[in-house]
């Protein structure tokens, strides 16, 4: 769970920050079932940093985190992020060194 945005359990489970523990359990079970059946819609989830692939392990880890109050509070803070234009694209400058005649 290093990526505060891409791996945030609220985004993985597509839940609002005010959801209950029951909502967490129900949503996790539903997503695991869909993933095991290979439902395409469940294969990715949206985050403010762009779409990410969803796996059964990720869903289980998200469920476990949201059931621990300290971890849930921490993740709630990061889940407040809004999508930012251009945030998904890592803007690296072009490499022109190979275009120099002497290199």
């Amino acid at each position: 769970m290093d990526d505060r945005f891409g791996d945030n359990p609220f985004f993985v489970l597509e839940l609002e920050v005010g959801c209950t523990s029951m909502d967490v359990m129900r949503q996790a079970d539903k997503l695991i079932g869909m993933l095991e059946l290979g439902v395409e819609k469940a294969a990715t989830y949206p985050t403010p940093a762009g779409d990410k692939p969803r796996t059964v392990d990720k869903v289980r880890a998200a469920r476990a985190r949201l059931l621990v109050p300290e971890k849930r509070f921490f993740d709630e803070i990061w889940a407040k992020a809004r999508a930012v234009d251009g945030a998904a694209a890592q803007a690296a400058g072009p490499d022109l060194f190979g275009a120099l005649w002497w290199r």
């Binding site: 403010p48 940093a49 803070i77 407040k80 992020a81 809004r82 930012v84 945030a87 694209a89 890592q90």
Partner: peptide, 14 residues
């Protein structure tokens, strides 16, 4: 909070 976290995402992603 939303502004701080969104700015965090912005500066970390580029």
């Amino acid at each position: 909070l939303a502004d701080a976290v969104t700015t965090h995402l912005f500066v970390k992603s580029r």
